[in-house]
Computed example of a mutant assay.
Amino acid sequence: MRVVSLVPSLTEAVALTRPEVLVGATDWCTHPAGLDVARVGGSKYPDLARVLALRPDLVLLNEEENRRADADALLAAGVPVRVTFPRTVPEALTELADLAGALGATAEPDWLVAARRAWAALPEPGALRRAVVPVWRRPWVVLGSRTFAGDVLRRLGVANLYAEDAERYPRPDLAELRARRPELVVLPDEPYRFTADDGPESFPGVPCALVSGRHLTWYGPSLAEAPALLAAQLAQPG
């Protein structure tokens, strides 16, 4: 089997499960460290000619990260694709188990077993902290409804104030964000790299937690360490 992954989360999952089948990945696939496979451009605009030149038996995509046009083009070229789109932690664990099986793994990989245990060990959250979760600024974009990251945060005791919005990624202005009176602002370091000097100053008087974007939004081996790491980051807002 020859696999090309256009999703960083899944690149890491394949590399730690069946590394010998992974022949290509995007320029944004940064994990595991030292990954040595052919690069095929970005997730949104991959070089399909380079993908096809690798003669893949399967290309991995995500409904949100990748374009439907690229999936259609691969299918038209006779290349099977596998499209993921988890909106909750359980959905991610199920899709990852299915992927491991499709790759020919005879048992769930250790990282997936560890991820199941880590999330199952979390206690039911008590009172939830009301939060806004920007993922971009200029313009401001926040987590809205039915997002994987929103489910991750809820399981860690954080209620997304835009969880019932009609859009998955609303674009409120800063005045509206402040008007929601959040008890917490969660600032990930990707896709926009919020830092202590870029983000918290927009929410004076409100605790701001800088968190790992990879552990908040990726659904792969990082799920095993995400609960403990994110819980620690959320407990120490600036």
Rank of each mutant, 00 (worst) to 15 (best):
R2E: 01
V3Y: 02
L10D: 01
T11Q: 01
T17W: 00
P19D: 05
E20R: 08
L22F: 04
G24A: 02
D27R: 01
H31W: 15
A33L: 14
P46A: 14
A49L: 12
L54S: 06
L54D: 10
L58C: 10
L60D: 00
E63S: 07
E63N: 09
E64S: 08
G78Q: 08
F85G: 06
P90H: 11
A92F: 03
E95I: 06
L96W: 00
L96G: 00
L96P: 00
L99S: 07
A102D: 15
A105I: 05
T106C: 04
P109W: 02
L122Q: 10
E124P: 13
A127G: 09
A131Q: 05
V133N: 06
P134H: 14
V135I: 15
R138C: 12
L143E: 03
V152A: 10
R155T: 02
L161G: 01
A163T: 02
E167A: 14
E167H: 14
P170C: 13
P170D: 08
D173E: 15
D173Q: 12
R178D: 03
R178N: 08
R180E: 01
R181H: 09
P182E: 00
L184S: 00
V186P: 04
V186M: 09
R193W: 08
T195Y: 05
D197I: 05
E201I: 07
F203A: 04
P204Y: 03
A209R: 04
V211S: 04
S212W: 10
S212L: 04
H215R: 15
Y219S: 01
A224V: 04
A224P: 01
A228D: 06
L229E: 10
A232I: 09
Q233T: 05
L234I: 03
L234K: 13
P237V: 07
G238V: 12
